[in-house]
Design a protein around this nucleic acid. Structure first.
Lengths: 216, 216
DNA sequence: GAATTAATTAAACGTTCGTTTTATTATTGC
DNA sequence: GCAATAATAAAACGAACGTTTAATTAATTC
């Protein structure tokens, strides 16, 4: 009926975050109750409010940190002074790896946007748009230099992102394919989709050369 | 406080279906209350239970009919005795057209699966799997005859479906692009993604010949 | 070791939810 | 035009929801 032995705020907060991502991904934000979350964490529902003032703020925190993580991952992975093929390769690889490794958090960020207040929705969408713009820039550069042949840059960017993010719907770790195999195949499909020149792509390939060269 | 003048069961049921699809697509199944739905229809909440025994049965009905509609549309559109390129073209065209014209129902069928009971979920997933299998068959046939060059048939099918269905996320009728323009561009991207031979595709093209020939 | 602060429980609050019950009126069939 | 039935309204049910308040104990500080 009060503070329990060995209790630690930082640990509790981390446990809440983790449990919330899993529960929301599985049941949905609206369907997850604060009591259910508290039970999963091992505390009473009231204890959650020491860490997050409202249920929506908890959701927003999860989404914001997911988007920040994605942006940071890309800033780290983004090659400097590279040609469009290399940059597109890096984007695809980073996107798929990041999303597969954070399947549940991605599910939350993609499916629960409508549960955010307008202001918070705008904030998340702004981060998402900025991230997607990076891809559009790569595609446009590649189209202008003749490396890619693309009808509609914006439409192609959306198609690629939907295709790549869709991996989390069917991918299950430890089954038929490894992350690396999935990434390789998606890289190959992406390059064909944007009409990348074989030579330019072949020269830029970071891994899996033999199998993919045949795929073209 | 009882039956109202001009009330008609069939009309009311149709109105409920329509309003439910829109509300669930906008707010989500869990977030939509039966009272909210009733208000949208213009009746009391109790009246809904004359048409659907539970909220979940209502959701299931909407999903089942959406999947049945998709299956029927494909059975009508499916070409007989056609080569893989023609069949893939028909599949893409049917899929995109159907989904764009039923954006809200598609949203419901894709996002609210976790609100179904296990038995109903299985039933919907069975219909979906059967529909997706049609695409895998086309891809496999094309790969075997050398018309397509594909790494992994199952993976490519999932990638294509995610890419095509993703249209409903960003497409808004009456904006920059028409349905036909979107379909044409997606057809072009699809054919490149599966490595279709240009000649075979060009010969099979049902529409938009000039623009798309250039796209390859 | 006393005072302070951090972490939590237990209980309750008002609201809303899906659903049921009962009564009432419009329409239809004969 | 009268009985049967279809279509609704009004009110209520118990349960669950997000959240708040107050009390209580563990850990930390000095």
């Amino acid at each position: 009926m009060a503070r329990t032995a060995g209790s630690d705020g930082e640990k509790t907060e981390a446990t809440i975050r983790e449990a919330a991502v899993n529960l929301i991904a599985r049941f949905g934000y609206e369907a997850m109750s604060m009591r259910q979350l508290a039970a999963e964490v091992g505390v009473q529902a009231a204890a959650l409010y020491r860490y997050f003032p409202t249920k929506e703020e908890l959701l927003f925190t999860l989404m914001r940190e997911h988007m920040e993580g994605l942006t940071e991952a890309w800033e780290t992975a983004r090659p400097v002074n590279a040609d469009p093929v290399q940059r597109l390769s890096a984007y695809v690889e980073n996107h798929i790896t990041f999303h597969i490794e954070r399947r549940h958090a991605t599910h939350v960020s993609n499916m629960e946007l409508r549960s955010l207040s307008p202001e918070r929705l705008t904030q998340i969408l702004r981060m998402r748009t900025a991230y997607e713009k990076e891809l559009r820039t790569i595609l446009r550069d590649g189209a202008e230099t003749g490396t890619f042949s693309i009808d509609d840059t914006g439409l192609t960017a959306m198609a690629l992102i939907q295709m790549m993010t869709g991996v989390i719907v069917w991918f299950r770790p430890g089954e038929r394919l490894s992350i690396a195999e999935v990434t390789t195949t998606y890289l190959s499909m992406t390059m064909r989709l944007v009409g990348a020149k074989i030579d330019a792509y072949g020269a830029a390939r970071p891994f899996g050369r033999a199998k993919d060269a045949a795929a073209f």
